[in-house]
Amino acid sequence: MVGFYIDAIAALILFGVGLYGVTSKSDFLKIFFSLEMLLNAVILLLASGAYHFGLTRGLAVAYVIIVIATLEAAAGILIFILSHRITGEIIPDNLNKAVEDE
């Protein structure tokens, strides 16, 4: 039971770090890393629940999350490279401004 609390606290801290990255960082790569951290915090909680309480249904959700993260990575890197080609930067805030200037 103590192990689950340690995992839950670690997952919560990881979730907090990821959330801070999503809300504060303004370049695509760090936002992408932060999103992956959010997803991995949930996977950590699900794996810990499966180990400590036998809730193996959560593992199915964890596999689905990993597949979604893979697809998100492919789409994210595509957006990231397109943004760099359009604006010469990887800052999403400047994307609208660059398009308006053109």
């Binding site: 504060s24 760099h84 805030d93």
Partner: peptide
């Protein structure tokens, strides 16, 4: 995922741009 990310890094270079503090 990291191979994809490294491919992106080869496009943008080795330094992150400066950003606004929120």
């Amino acid at each position: 995922i990291v191979v994809l990310t490294l491919f992106g890094v080869t496009v943008i270079g080795s330094k992150f741009p400066d950003f606004k503090i929120r």
